[in-house]
Design a protein around this nucleic acid. Sequence first.
DNA 1: TTAGGGTTAG
Length: 615
Amino acid sequence: MVGRIRILEWEAVRIIESRCTTLHHAKQVHAHIYRNNLHQCSYVITNLLRFLTNLPHLPVQSYPHLLFSQVHSPNPFLYSALIRAYARNGPLFQSIRLYSSMLNNNVSPVSFTFSALFSSLKNPTLGTQLHLHAMLFGFVSDLYVGNTIIHMYVKCGLLSSARKVFDEMPHRDAVSWTELIVAYAKSGDMDSARELFDGLPGKDKFAWTSMVTGYAQNAMPKKALEFFLRLQEAGVETDEIILVGVISACAQLGVSGYASWIRGIAESSRFGSVNNVLVGSALIDMYSKCGNVEEAYSVFKGMKERNVFSYSSMIAGFAVHGQARAAIKLFYEMLEAGIKPNHVTFIGVFTACSHAGMVEQGQYLFGVMEKYYGVAPTADHYACMADLLGRAGQLEKALQLVQTMPMEPNGGVWGALLGASHIHRNPDVAEIASHYLFELEPDNLGNYLLLSNTYALAGRWDDVSRVRKLMREKQLRKNPGCSWVEAKNGIVHEFFAGDVKHPEINEIKKALDDLLQRLKAIGYQPKLNSVPYDIDDEGKRLLLMSHSEKLALAYGLLNTDAGSTIKIMKNLRICEDCHIVMCAASKDTGRKIVVRDNMRFHHFLNGTCSCSNFW
DNA sequence: TTAGGGTTAG
């Protein structure tokens, strides 16, 4: 008889494994189990639960508990399986209650009990208590339990506790290492991640990927590329996740040479943009950040499948390149394709409206985003609206919106208002915005500069010195302006404001001087009030001449083929005078000039800019 | 029974 039951149990588990793909099937299988009088068998029900928990979107609260309650004397594995079910799909307190009732019924936990408890736990108090229990029952030296405890501490943000567990583990595996490497990377501590990685004996694909994506996510794109090359040398096969990390690194570098290099690698792998929505979306973002929005769109068009990421990246791409109408059009195409926009999509849409002065369109969509599309506006969306109204010159309305918004305005909101006050030279609104900003972001230098420049534009030099003094007291120093330009051999040259170090500086200065003379002949006047210092006009003229983007432009004119686009990147916002010069130079030389500043892209062609002077 | 993922504004 015993043997017969064992065969039946085994048979039931086999049926569970082959048939339980939906809740409906699970119920059929359960009926079969009941008919065969196996519904009290912990082993069979544990397996059924295991499959149920892996099925997505199941009402785990009721059905699994029903299964469980039919078993008269559940064994520790069945308890643990239900604990895991509750830990995964909630409510969490049920899993803790089950654990206590297990102890009360004198059922001793097994290691699986603890890994089930820890797997989804994010409560540090509970986590620490259960860690103690695991120690008392002698399970902390178990590899799985140790790994889930590390996982739990990482989720709770207690990195040092996680590290302590790691250091004390008698046996570790690749999971233990990677879990910690990723945790350090996510916390921004790439040095510790690197240290662990270097000490890892057998570096597998997960570990390599974590380093590449970690560097990419922490704005260290060159390091990310370096590790990608090392990963290839180590013979690790590239997959879509690695590619996405490297593509994102290339996007940050913004250099077209790197872009076409990684594109080639991606397209010649199994993970090309046509079939892989992840790689495709990353490429869209990369091309638009490299200044090539046409290529971004061509990747987008070529994709077989598109999701909310692909659409949102493309919309944001159009937005920062000043193609607002294309962005809005794509937004409506997205809706027609049945893809639900998310909060990021709306940021892109509002940015587009804002840079094109499309106030009514933006306000309309802001008004209906929750009602029609189920996306509740966040403070970030309010920041976009403050920007939209503010840029369009409706500063009072923008201020009113900020003062009546339903949540606490964040730095972005006041920052948008301050930026708009600067554009429209309104020191009064600028003062209100900076009052809050200096509280929220006391060390953000840009805010002090905007306020001081707004005072300067209004000629309020006493206030300028007051803000500058504040900056000195806080020991905030201005980042030097810096620009990069791609020469025709793909090498990137760097220029600082007032640069004298470049080996060809004399030729560059001569070329710039010649250009400015020609531009003056067709009416260019240096915009002296772009200089926020109280110095004489000649000093202002010299300072403007030495701006890094002008040096980069002159270098680009000397070192790129006639007819090709000159691509310049700048770490700060382009100044009004440089913007005028770029416009005029594009007409004078017949060249297309693309400038990526820290805000957006400017496409200069035949005397005009894609931003329509909205930036 | 635990580990790597793309879109965001001032």
